[in-house]
Design a protein around this nucleic acid. Structure first.
Length: 324
DNA sequence: AAGCTCATCAACCGCAGCCGT
DNA sequence: GACGGCTGCGGTTGATGAGCT
């Protein structure tokens, strides 16, 4: 027996909402309140599915929404929250008053995900942690819908070990279009040279996918290792200045992490995976102190199938502390 | 001006959690 | 505990408009 439909589809209108429908919905909710979405269309006299009504209200009609472009500050918050929470848009949206999960998701998919994001290490920090096992053991991400149970497990598996994390500031956007202009400033001259020779920074010849994979990863790693600052999309080095806010986020993340750890019954196995993973990328497990960095941000995808051959060699060289 | 490409965003779809029975 | 309905979430789609040729 299959799942029953969420509502009776026959005769229901789909597609763009008209001004009249909006007005009807707003008036109904103002007088009756939110909720009971199933029965709302019938009671309000709308030929819409309840889910459609809910979505229209939440994403467009409710009064506390902030319209217009995202500010630089909001950009930064989204980047940081995405690092922390992944694609949990509702959670990200909860930190951005007036913005909806749908809006943030669209914004991310349309713009931010194409750019390179990373946190940079607090210059006072000398000890962080790497957990490459979480990267190496990730399966290549499926396109299309991913079941919630899989997503949940994935999120648990890649959860950051904040107990050793000392990330204090988000490093901002490095638009690939800016890479060439900043390439001479890159502290690692050999990487820079390689990038130039390979013309990997050529926006016209690189697909978005390649940009978002190994080009960005190279720059991430390079800047990460140097502890240098990067540029945001406006080409100005930028940090989030609200340290209290950051502390609050990190505290929330840590609470989540503690909850996850309670459920983790495979710690020993994870440790072995971690060792194997480090070996896989050419790192001696015993040398991790100085590499004790947290790499659990979404921008890194070391196991992506697009990463192969020459790119892999470069990354391995970087990991080993040398030059490509 | 017409056709094409691409970015944006509103809306839809289907899965999964929650809760009442 | 099993079942089913409701709701929320996240991925995807398609309409639209701007910019380019």
């Amino acid at each position: 027996m299959g799942r029953s439909p969420c509502c009776e589809k026959t005769g229901l209108k789909t597609g763009r909402w008209t001004a009249e429908e909006d007005e009807t919905l707003v008036k109904y909710i103002q007088s009756n309140g939110e909720g009971s979405w199933k029965s709302l269309p019938k009671n309000a006299g709308l030929m819409r599915c309840g889910k459609s009504c809910r979505l229209r209200w939440i994403n467009y009609l409710r009064g506390d929404l902030k319209r217009g472009n995202f500010t630089v500050e909001e950009d930064e918050m989204i980047v940081m929250l995405h690092k922390a929470f992944g694609n949990r848009w509702s959670m990200i949206a909860s930190h951005l008053p007036g913005r909806t999960d749908n809006e943030i998701k669209n914004y991310w998919n349309a713009r931010l995900s194409r750019q390179s994001y990373r946190f940079f290490i607090n210059k006072n920090t000398t000890k962080t942690s790497i957990d490459i096992s979480t990267l190496v053991n990730q399966k290549k991400r499926r396109t299309g819908r991913v079941s919630r149970s899989v997503a949940k497990k994935y999120n648990q598996d890649k959860s950051p070990s904040l107990s050793t994390t000392k990330i204090s500031n988000p490093q901002m956007v490095m638009d690939t279009q800016v890479i060439q202009e900043n390439v001479n400033d890159c502290p690692n001259a050999d990487v820079t040279k390689h990038m130039e020779e390979s013309q990997v920074h050529d926006h016209n010849v690189m697909s978005d996918e390649l940009e978002s994979n190994w080009v960005d990863e190279l720059f991430n790693i390079d800047y990460f290792l140097q502890g240098d600052e990067a540029m945001d999309s406006s080409r100005v080095s930028s940090n989030i200045h609200d340290d209290d806010q950051i502390e609050q986020w990190l505290a929330e993340i840590e609470v989540e992490e503690l909850k996850r750890n309670e459920r983790n019954v495979n710690e020993r196995e994870d440790e072995n995976l971690r060792k194997n993973s480090l070996e896989t990328v050419g790192c001696c497990y015993g040398e991790t102190d100085q590499w004790d960095m947290e790499f659990s941000f979404a921008g890194f995808n070391m196991c992506d199938e697009n990463m192969c051959g020459e790119e892999d060699d470069i990354l391995v060289s970087l990991w080993e502390g040398g030059n490509p």
